[in-house]
Design a binder for these strands. Structure first.
Lengths: 269, 269
DNA sequence: ATTGCTTGTATTGCTGTGCGATACGACTGT
DNA sequence: ACAGTCGTATCGCACAGCAATACAAGCAAT
């Protein structure tokens, strides 16, 4: 079992792989490496921790942090002392969300969907082995993490991911499965390739995927893929509810058609 | 009047101001400058547009864009062609939100507040002349922009901003007012220094601030400041509703106490 | 088709930027 | 008072990154 935090580990740490690429700017990579130090961190970091995490010398870390701090991408935490990501980050978040045409045209559809479905509605975008939540519409009771944009979950064990895989070839699905870190989140997380493949086939049949407690205990989730040009799946719509309130079948019968229609409205071939 | 988009213009474009700072890494600044090109953009950008917007040569832009693309911070838009911010941005968004202790401890309080108040609840953090929305809990009907994390609004004409100014000295308030670009959003936006100062004094009296249609027509908004160590205001809680449903007085009478209590729970001296 | 614009990509040599190494001062806790 | 952190400051050499330029690929218009 792994913490919900670890989902982010799908992000590879690009090291000195670019030694030969003449167009590759090392210092930018270092800067981003520094910002990425925070990915594994659970609290504000010290300069030396950043240096080690980023795999660079202390001098380099000093310069980079100084620069990023000047620019507002790193701050000192007012409560604790130590460095944290700076508020300027959010400017780029906004740019990402605004300029992503898929998100823009998804937004009204999602709000409408949320109005009909009274449960949590999420929009996620695929990034290789993971789905990154880009838009989150809460239901009444939610946890901290369920409100966070940028949170990511693996493709192989989530409803949205299965729905995405349903629109990929068997080869691609296998590729995803084998390359994924399939450490289970809960006792119910399916990790066996065959079990996952079976679920994907089901999703192909139904046009949507369901997962039961594979990421969070007590959660039923339903995912429908969003397709881009050439039928390539670009992400998914998720509807999530509590097994305390719903039978899985009823949940699907009620919400799958709505979610599917929403996904269709957003998809673009 | 200005578009809601222009609020972001509070971000100064740091040019070659750092010519003498020996610790300042130029190429990082250039990279961020490139990413910031998207701030003013309304659509995917071409390489040359990026070069001009960032104020650098085409060669530099080429290298930087290539690097950022390799790292996943810039992508090509699948629909339109052109460059857009990449999904890797959202990883840093998550880091920012997770590691910001204020946001972490605000989250449950906000969710609780949202449960009692059935209107939109937002958490914003101050960045000099602006407030940046870090957490957004929608009500039933919302617009696209009202759901976007990272969106920012000026301090001088928003409920949260007035609440923040209420906890600053008169000198600091004047400083904010004079340095702000006070182009009005609506016909009701207060831009006169004296009018703003008066509103700030009211906010000091009441412990909260109200604005009527100063940013969006038909909107009543209520803001309470969140204080950090030494009583420094770090941001605000916003509750926003529609004047079609509420009288301003009733809105305040009902929600101000709740919002104030929430803000107190989050504040830390 | 041919032309003329734009787009993105590739190459090279010189310049000056950014890293390593190192030293220093300010805080903590024992 | 001490050892152990922390962040900051300085400086010279090596090599990373920019300007300049040329090339290729796509699109519009004639």
């Amino acid at each position: 079992m792994r913490s919900i935090l670890r989902a982010q580990s799908g992000v590879r740490s690009e090291q000195e792989l670019h030694a030969d690429d003449p167009l590759f700017v090392q210092s930018i990579a270092r800067a981003m490496q520094v910002l990425s130090s925070f990915h594994q961190a659970g609290r504000p970091l010290t300069l030396n921790e950043i240096a080690t995490a980023a795999g660079i010398g202390k001098s380099a870390a000093q310069r980079v942090v100084h620069t990023l701090k000047t620019l507002g991408y790193i701050e000192r935490d007012p409560d604790d002392r130590g460095y944290v990501p700076g508020i300027r980050i959010l400017d780029h978040t906004l740019d990402y969300l605004r300029l992503n045409l898929l998100i823009a045209r998804a937004s009204p559809v999602l709000l409408e969907l949320r109005r009909n479905v009274r449960e949590r509605v999420d929009l996620s975008l695929r990034d290789d082995l993971r789905l990154v939540y880009a838009s989150r519409l809460q239901s009444k009771r939610e946890t901290f993490f369920a409100t966070l944009v940028g949170h990511s979950v693996p493709v192989f064990c989530t409803s949205g991911g299965r729905a995405v895989m349903a629109h990929l070839s068997d080869g691609e699905v296998d590729d995803i499965i084998t390359r994924s870190d399939r450490t289970p989140f809960t006792a119910k997380t399916l990790t066996e390739p065959d079990a996952i493949r079976k679920k994907v086939r089901e999703a192909r049949q139904n046009g949507y995927a369901v997962t039961l407690e594979e990421v969070l205990p007590g959660e039923v989730a339903l995912g429908v893929a969003i397709l881009g040009p050439a039928g390539v799946p670009r992400g998914a719509i998720h509807v999530a509810g509590s097994l305390g309130e719903w039978q899985a079948e009823e949940f699907c019968a009620r919400f799958a058609p709505l979610a599917a229609e929403a996904a269709r409205a957003i998809s673009r071939f």
